[in-house]
Structure formats: C-alpha cells, structure tokens
Nucleic acid binder design. Structure first.
Lengths: 260, 260
DNA sequence: CGAGGTTACTTTACGATGTAAGGAGTCGCA
DNA sequence: TGCGACTCCTTACATCGTAAAGTAACCTCG
C-alpha cells in the first residue's frame, strides 16, 4: 500500500504538520489524547507491523477505540504524513563541511539509509508529492546545504540531490524488504533463497548458460560482514560500492565547474 | 501495498513462472480460462486501478467470479509475480554495443523508465527478493551484458547495476506516483501544488529564510517540455541530469580499470 | 448555579477486500 | 455406465477504513 500525501483538506493537513497551536480553553471534556501521542503510537505500531498497520491497533495501544483517533486526525493518510514527518526529525539538520562535501554527503546517505531500515514503512510513503512537513524540508535542506557550496548550477544540483535520494531509498528498500519478508513469514533469508534456487535449478538447469553475464556478475562474492544474513550482506556491499560510483560522478561535475 | 514475492509454495510459484507445461488430456471440464489470460487481465486491471486492484475485478473482466481464478493461480501474491514477470517481457533482451557501453546503458535506463511509467504498479512489487522469473532475469542480463565487457570486477559491477536500477526506479516512481495521485483525485499537479503552497506560505511565510539552500536549489527552473505537467517536468529533468552524473561515475571506474 | 452548546469518545454499521469451504455440474477413462 | 478429477459458483468470514449517531464530560454565559 503506497500512501499518497494528504488527499484531504490541504489546510487541515498542513496546519497539523506545522503544529499550528490549537485554541486553548475550549468547552467540552479535556482531551485525553494528543496528536503527538497518536503519531508516536502510530510509529511504534508501524515499526512492528509495517505500513499495513490498522487504526484499530493504534487506538488500542492508547487504550482507545479506532474512532477516537478521528477527533485528532482526519484519517489514516494524514496520520501517515504526520508519522513520516516526525520520523524525519530523527536526522541531523546539518553536517560538518570541514573535510569537503564528499564525506558529508556520505554521512547524510548513511544516516538516511539507517533511518529507512529502522522505519521501513517510511519507504512506502509516496515520493512523488512531498508531504511538505517541516522535518522533511530540513532533511533535504541538510543535503542541499552540503552541495550548494560546490558552486554547481541549480539544474545540476537537483539532478544530484534526486539521484542520491533515489539511490539511498532503493538500497535501503532492498534490506528493509528482505527483513520484512523474512520477519513476516519467519523465514530466514538463507532458507528462502535455498528453497527457491533449488527448485529453480531443478526446473531450469541451464540457467548459467542462458544468462552468462548475470552469472559473471555473481562472481567473487565475499561476505562483508559474516554476522549479517545473505541478502543483507549483498545490500550493504551494493550500498557502499554504488554510492562510491555515484559520488565519483558528482566529483567529476564539481571538478568541471571548479576549473572550466 | 508492497507485495512480497511468492510466500507460498516455492515449487508451485516457480513452475508457474517458467510455464512448466501442464499435462494435457485431463479429466474434467475443459478449462475456460488460462494462466496467460488471467495474467493479461490482471495487468490490464492493474494499469487502470493500480496495485490495489481486486481479484473480483480481474475475474469480472474475464466473465468469471474471483474464486474461479484460484483454480489457476494460488493467490493474489503469486498472480502479481506472474504479472511482473510478463511485464518485463516488454523490454529488449540485448542492446547494441557499437558505440560503447554508455549509450547502451542510457537506452536500457530509458526503456526501463518508460516501462515503469507504463505500468506503475510494477514499482510496488518488492525488490528485495527477486521474483525469479525468466523475463526478470533477462532484463538484468541485458544490463549486465552491457557492463561486463568493460572489464570491471564483479563487486564493482554489482554496485553499478544496483545503483542504475535504484536510480531508474526512483526517478520513475516520482512521475508514476505524481500521475497516479493526480488521476486518483482527478486533481492536476498544478492545482495540487498551488493549493498546498498557498496554505504553506500563509502559515509559514519565512520558508525561504528557514531553508536557504533548498530555496537556492529551486532556482533557474525551466520547463523541459511545456506540454508536460509541472511535477513531470521536474522528474524528466532530474532523470536526465541524474543519469548523466551517475554514468560519469561509472566512466571514472571504467577508466581506472582500463589504465591502471 | 443551572442551562445550553461544544467536545471526547464509544457503539454500531457499511462496503470493500482476500480467500476458505463446500457444492454443482462436466468430462476422460475404466 | 459410473468413478473420480476437474472447473467454477455460492456462501461465508475476518479484517480494513470510516460514516453516523449516541452518551457523557466540561466550559461559558445567563
């Protein structure tokens, strides 16, 4: 389930995201909950159960029914937006530039990647239309602030920011979903892979000849970290090497601007 | 809804994917449907309604009930796997290398990008655990076959293949979801953006000062194609520039191997 | 202090969804 | 001719987001 950013009333959504203070001293019973409490509960539930968490589960965690949430939040979509933005607050808002842009971007990417792995459901919030919350802005600001001093033009910068973003997201998705799928079925990566590749080899024994380049691609594979499961090792390796290549490309662009 | 690759019986899944021929001349009534017909109908419905299509809708398109499908296909997850692999068959299985790897990879990326935009639901099939169908293999084989002749080592190649993949997926997701969200609500990009940015400016007037780098990032924006809606223009621009940067990185790696 | 209106929260209910269970009809082969 | 495998249907269930309406708590104003 990909959740699209606030399709309801834009004003209500944005006021919630930016925490417009609600008028105090209102008639009626004291609120027993708060938007913050609901968002926290939502994140906790989503971390456990993934994006397919239910409003009932969030309510239950707060000792309420699902419908109680609708007093504070217009619907599940908007709650997810709030959860998304609150999650982004876990990241630093700036990175030291003492050693230049490259280590800074690398650290930004690693932090982002770790956040995705920590909160895999975030990967299922639609990227197309930004949530437009304060912390989402801050995260991209942090990356932009690293790259702007390179002197690259806006067009170039947007391409780079996009590419780094896409890359980190994709790389993280690989681990996150590997874990989620394993967790859901209780099946470890190795078992999953083994069961399938065994059947595959039996049904299609000449795979290696049919896809020679792919076979070559899988050569000299060495575990980066023997503690980690199979697919995760792959993902970590791909993240490191892929990011290096990508940043080499950025370096070329930066050099081209520095010495025209 | 992210759909995880075949969590059911591995043998059944893989036999379906590789179209193990079913014994003919079986007792019982003649099958009125076929796996192929169901997969086609599924793709058609998913293209219209997205990944949240229902088994009932697929059945209806074939003049059957939802339950009729379960005779041919174990469940929705497996059907999605089949749809995914069939979709990958739309792509070329090899690219000419006459002009070197770079234009070939560029074309691969563009073809892939267009496929994602054509079938946005494909973006929601989990990447972590491959579907392991013949056409999925063929698509990665095509990319690998372009890059293997560069002489790069396996580790490096995997990083690059991953990065290109992630990048294309991410870039495509941006357009695809922009369209899907617009299509779902009947709301054009411009309206969506306008409604939100107006409220945002009203509530948080000093955005530009709060996020200076972001503000700079948005500078000198020119529509690539005036026919296209707002967000799509962005996406196309980001795709071009991002891919160029990424391939510059690959070029650096290739040169490093060529002349050590 | 008491009435009236507003708010917090609950109960109930509705229309989706994926799919399990079981039955009705159809056909090949003994 | 009948048995058993097969296709397809009907019915049913749990689960989901959330609409509607009711109840009880509480502030404000007379």
């Amino acid at each position: 389930m990909v959740v699209y950013a606030g399709q309801g009333d834009p004003r209500r959504s944005i006021e919630l995201l930016w925490r417009r203070p609600v008028a105090e001293q209102r008639p009626g019973p004291k609120p027993g909950l708060s938007v913050d409490a609901i968002v926290d509960a939502g994140i906790a539930v989503a971390d456990e159960q993934g994006m397919a968490f239910s409003m009932r589960a969030v309510g239950e965690r707060l000792g309420r029914t699902a419908m109680a949430l609708y007093t504070y939040v217009p619907g599940k979509n908007e709650l997810v937006d709030l959860m998304y933005d609150r999650t982004m607050a876990e990241l630093p808002t700036s990175y030291p530039l003492a050693d230049g842009w490259r280590p800074a971007v690398t650290r930004w990417a690693r932090d982002m990647w770790e956040l995705y792995v920590r909160h895999p459901w975030v990967l299922q919030v639609s990227q197309a239309r930004p949530v437009l919350g304060p912390h989402e802005f801050a995260v991209i600001e942090a990356l932009a602030a690293i790259l702007v001093p390179t002197g690259l033009p806006g067009r170039e910068l947007r391409g780079i920011v996009g590419a780094v973003n896409y890359f980190v997201r994709g790389a993280a998705q690989t681990v996150a979903e590997a874990r989620a799928a394993g967790g859901a079925t209780g099946e470890a990566d190795e078992e999953w892979w083994y069961a399938r590749s065994a059947v595959l080899m039996e049904i299609e024994p000449d795979l290696a000849e049919k896809f020679p380049a792919l076979h070559l691609l899988e050569s000299d594979r060495e575990p980066v970290d023997p503690e980690l499961p199979y697919l995760e090792n792959d993902a970590v390796e791909n993240f490191r090497n892929g990011l290096r290549v990508l940043l080499d490309g950025v370096e070329a662009a930066v050099r081209a601007v520095a010495k025209p």
